[in-house]
Design a protein around this nucleic acid. Structure first.
Lengths: 219, 219
DNA sequence: GTCTATACTAGGATAGAC
DNA sequence: GTCTATCCTAGTATAGAC
């Protein structure tokens, strides 16, 4: 318990931040962290190169020794966000126990958890993706589509097997993804709910939404 | 200015997705429509006063004869969006038949419908609200809170009366609002689903989510 | 890698003619 | 109300010294 709590405390400290392992060391990492905060707060277009420099503790010109342009900073963040989410979803599916209901619960739980624990990253990855040109956006769009397919395949499986009654997997997926994504907009670390509580509750909502039988909803 | 220009102004203002009644006639309306499209597409900070002028068919300087600043254009749009949504929610509640389940279905239906039919307006009202200073944002924030209370009161009523089993109305509201809001991000007029289909399906999801009894979910 | 200095562009807003 | 012309600031990015 001690180790897990410690780990959680640590990730909560960097929460609303970047996944630790994905952050480059030194100045490049500080630029990324500064960009994340500022893009989340004021948007990409509302943030200047000088804002980023000030937040990162460097002169704005130094940024160009690490990234080719402001857009390249954004591209790094957006890709990172999509990779983190997709990785978590895959891991959740692989380690989930039980049938479609258990897998769906795990998938939604991971989705919501990611959007709470990395709220800023999710915000930037979702809201500013459209800024990126075609080739810069492509990898993130591909990851997003793959993540979507994980959910759709699961819903189809559940419907075919009779565990789910949802008549329209496409709309069910849109609803499930939507309620999870919005969490990044309102979650704050000092709120009455922990990310885990939200994730568990929302995964129950998802099961109800697809019409999973009551006895399949046990955790 | 001839009738032809007036007609163009009106259709330009309404075709993009502004509630007809709320659009000022003439140039002011075209500016609003241009701002709506551009803010929805590129964001407030990503849109220049010259962009707006070009889209509205006027010189950028002319904008200042109708609005005091670019921010005032945004303020008008954001308020309009929140007013439209709140008005629809109220109307839905007043005209709904049945108990809490029927009211919830009507409320969610109106919420989703608004986010599909006025997707651009919803996008701008939600994504750019934070740009506005305190006094400019206040009326919209107040409307948003009132709308939220409509839903929360309804959920409480349903839980107290035993029609809903949702243990946590706050999280249920967040989920319901979230899935509806996201519709504005993916709805497109040429999609396989009509706004009504989405609204009806999602209102069914909301009922399932709060644990409304099956026999209460009839339309 | 980091800074200072600077080139150059684009942006918000105003003045004044019509 | 609308335009042309313009002011001034702030923005992205580069050059070159250290």
């Amino acid at each position: 318990m001690g180790d897990r709590m410690l780990e959680r405390a640590r990730s909560a400290a960097t929460s609303a931040g970047l996944p630790t392992r994905a952050v480059p060391p030194g100045t490049a990492g500080r630029i990324l962290a500064a960009g994340l905060e500022l893009f989340a707060e004021k948007g990409f277009s509302g943030t200047s190169i000088r804002d980023i420099g000030a937040r990162a503790g460097i002169n704005s010109a130094t940024l160009y020794s690490h990234y080719r342009s402001k857009e390249h900073v954004l591209a790094a963040l957006v890709l990172l966000g999509h990779q983190e989410l997709h990785g978590r979803l895959q891991h959740a599916l692989v380690t989930a126990r039980g049938g479609p209901a258990g897998k769906l619960a795990a998938l939604v739980r991971a989705h919501v958890l990611a959007h709470a624990e990395y709220a800023q990253l999710a915000l930037v990855a979702n809201a500013e993706l459209h800024i990126l040109g075609g080739e810069a956006a492509a990898p993130s769009l591909a990851l997003r589509e793959q993540s979507r397919q994980l959910l759709l395949a699961l819903l189809d499986e559940g419907v075919r097997g009779g565990e789910f009654t949802a008549a329209d997997p496409l709309l069910a997926a849109a609803a499930i993804v939507g309620m999870g994504r919005q969490v990044a907009h309102w979650y704050r670390p000092n709120q009455p709910y922990t990310p885990e509580q939200i994730a568990d509750t929302f995964s129950g909502y998802a099961l109800a939404l697809v019409g999973a039988a009551e006895h399949d909803r046990e955790k």
